[in-house]
């Protein structure tokens, strides 16, 4: 395998409630530079908690109880994410790892124009840029995701779900991060819009070469778009493998259950007993 980008080692997250919930249990996972890794599992399996935990975005009562996350920067420097101070962490976020969230509807601040929300990113992370440079960068980004530069002055509610998710992708792309974590980015969207956005992500990835962790419960989709897939259940990764291997030769019983839960679009009938 090519050089690693992110190494997660023995990572555990516990929700400190009574009784404590062990949401992520000793996960070890390696992501290669330029790779698309799928993280599949049902709701409550800990996949989102893992993704948030890596960026240290978890809020109380969630506590990272164990493990390390190492980010291998393009500069050759290795960053131990758990060891970063609060200010270093803040600067690290979005610059190296950005995220696209599930709720395209709620990811944008409803009372601010989308242009200003995009500019925010530059204002904070690239303070040396002039307002003019920021605006032109935002316009470029909106063109890049085919939303259109003139939409910079629109408010989120004036855009459709698909458009909003494109804006979020533009935002995630703003600082040219090395990794994008996508949490159910297309789940709320129609199948045609979903496909269009997937296509766009793929294009951008070819152009800018970032890695992707793609989190979803939609295993058939992952099988088509990822290099490798990690199957998660009750906080543990039960199986990791190349997409083709997961499809043709699943090792874990749960993987097989998940695979058989999806009726095949063109395959054999008989999944629904009729």
């Amino acid at each position: 395998m090519s050089e690693p980008l992110l190494s997660i080692h023995d990572f555990s997250v516990t929700y400190d409630v009574d009784p404590p919930v062990h949401a992520v249990k000793g996960v070890t996972l390696e992501l290669a530079r330029g790779e698309i890794l799928g993280l599949a599992g049902e709701s409550g399996c800990g996949k989102t908690t893992l993704a948030y935990g890596v960026q240290r975005l978890l809020k109380a009562p969630a506590v990272i109880t164990n493990g390390s996350v190492m980010f291998h920067d393009a500069s050759g420097e290795d960053v131990d994410i758990n060891a970063l101070g609060a200010e270093e962490m803040r600067r690290f976020r979005w610059d190296k790892i950005s995220m696209v969230f599930q709720g395209a509807m709620n990811s944008l601040n409803p009372v601010a124009q989308i242009g200003s929300q995009l500019e925010d990113v530059f204002e904070v992370h690239r303070p040396e840029m002039t307002p003019r440079q920021r605006r032109s960068e935002v316009a470029d980004l909106l063109e890049l995701v085919r939303v259109g530069a003139q939409r910079a002055r629109s408010f989120p509610h004036e855009l459709s779900g698909g458009m909003r998710q494109r804006v979020m992708i533009a935002m995630a792309l703003a600082l040219r991060p090395q990794l994008m974590v996508m949490d159910e980015p297309t789940t709320a969207l129609d199948v045609l819009v979903q496909r269009e956005i997937i296509r766009q992500i793929s294009q951008l990835r070819h152009e800018f070469g970032f890695s992707v962790i793609f989190i979803t419960h939609d295993l058939p989709l992952l099988l088509e778009i990822t290099d490798r897939i990690a199957i998660m259940r009750e906080g543990e990764i039960v199986e990791v493998g190349r997409a083709e291997q997961i499809w043709t030769d699943p090792q874990d019983a749960y993987t097989r259950t998940l695979l058989s839960s999806f009726p095949r679009l063109t395959g054999e009938r008989g999944v629904v007993v009729r």
């Binding site: 698309i36 793929s202 058939p220 099988l223 290099d227 083709e244 679009l265």
Partner: peptide, 21 residues
């Protein structure tokens, strides 16, 4: 065409990994 269909995907594009096409 837009609906995920692993069967067709692996039948037609075996080895064609590395992202959505």
């Amino acid at each position: 065409a837009a609906s995920p269909d692993p069967e067709r995907h692996f039948a037609s594009a075996a080895g064609n990994l590395g992202g959505a096409q």
